[in-house]
């Protein structure tokens, strides 16, 4: 790809999300989403092979369909209420709007495209897909969250956490597993959205940190499957050890950062008299934890018998980049500063 085109695409990627953030008008928000969708497609097919083309096609079709539904819903809203402001959504249309955004985000039961698309593209593009591309639709969803029926959001959230956990159980491909992990985490975000949007923001923030860490790690280790993951402890032992912990943090085990959003969400749901829902959410996190645990088993908790490194150099010039180190620290150790983080949002 020529650098000029790459520049245009990346800046459009930024522009699209920013437009959606800043707009108060449905049409402009829709245009931002469209720019976003269009701009990532050449990035997806950058490594040009049939799987990438297939992924880009699937992505384009689902996103275009979602955007069309979104446009339809916003026009219907304008027809119904006579104005286009995002904040003043009227209630009956918001369900349609939520479902359209759910397709865009890949929330169960509209999640089927996400693992397929993730599998076709490179890890770094996958990082953009599960982090940056989620921001614009989530921003829209947060702005209309007070008008969405909480039942809808909770059902979507529960389905996402359960399906996200369940789907990942059977996978051996890292990118698909990370896609299912993304689905499960979005389920947590969605289920709290109506009651406390700020908490959803915190959850999104932590999710971004943890996901970026994991994708940077997998990118550095260059391992697309669980099997290749197992060979990495000799390349960079410290990274292998810490990223196993980072996976457990993604699963939400207590002394690590990932526990914080789960704890706060369960607390808020309990305060809303939704303790059974909170229990279901918490137990469905166990499903996700199972495949995180499997990843960390093969990443650093077992040693391949055939590559004992007696003559092997320990560090094969794999220097961990500084951003990854910083993100890793944030992924592992932010639980004690929970009050500070809460005060930021």
């Amino acid at each position: 790809m020529s650098p000029y085109i790459l520049f245009v695409m990346l800046s459009s990627l930024g522009l699209g999300t920013t437009l959606t953030f800043t707009s108060s008008h449905w049409l402009l928000a829709w245009m931002g989403l469209e720019i976003n969708t269009l701009a990532i497609i050449p990035l997806m097919t950058n490594k040009h092979h049939p799987r990438a083309v297939e992924a880009a096609t699937k992505y384009f079709l689902t996103q275009a369909a979602a955007a069309a539904i979104l446009l339809f819903a916003s026009i219907y809203n304008a027809w119904y209420s006579g104005q286009w402001f995002i904040q003043d959504m009227s209630s009956p249309v918001s369900t349609l709007m939520t479902l359209a955004i759910a397709i865009k985000l890949g929330i169960a039961p509209m999640h089927f495209w996400l693992p397929e698309v993730m599998q076709g593209i490179s890890i770094s593009t996958g990082l953009i897909l599960v982090t940056w591309q989620k921001l614009a639709p989530l921003a829209l969803l947060m702005q209309i969250s007070h008008n969405i029926k909480p039942e809808l959001l909770i059902i979507l959230g529960l389905m996402s956490t359960i399906i996200g956990g369940w789907g990942g159980l059977n996978q051996t491909q890292i990118r698909k597993i990370m896609a299912y992990s993304s689905i499960a985490h979005l389920g947590w975000i969605i289920s709290i959205l109506h009651f406390m949007p700020a908490l959803a923001m915190i959850n999104l923030f932590i999710y971004l940190i943890m996901t970026i860490t994991m994708f940077m790690t997998f990118n550095l280790l260059n391992s697309p499957t669980i099997n290749t993951l197992a060979m990495n402890w000799s390349k960079s032992p410290i990274l292998a050890a810490t990223s196993a912990l980072a996976l457990l943090s993604l699963g939400g085990l207590p002394p690590l950062t990932g526990f914080m959003p789960k704890w706060l969400i369960i607390q808020e749901l309990t305060n809303q008299e939704l303790a059974p829902t909170a229990t279901l959410l918490a137990l469905s996190a166990l499903l996700s934890l199972f495949f995180y645990l499997r990843l960390s088993y093969s990443l650093s908790l077992t040693i391949m018998p055939n590559t004992h490194p007696q003559t092997l150099n320990w560090n094969m010039k794999t220097t961990t980049p500084l951003p990854l180190s910083l993100m890793m620290m944030m992924t592992l150790t932010m639980l004690p500063i929970t009050p500070t983080i809460i005060s930021l949002f």
Partner: peptide, 28 residues
């Protein structure tokens, strides 16, 4: 919606670039 039309124009330009980029070269 004057500014919005400007953005819409940008959308069209991006779409054009995307199509060109996707269909560039032999066998692509």
């Amino acid at each position: 919606g004057g500014y919005m039309l400007l953005v819409a124009g940008w959308v069209l330009l991006v779409a054009l670039l995307v199509v060109l980029e996707l269909t560039r070269g032999f066998g692509r």
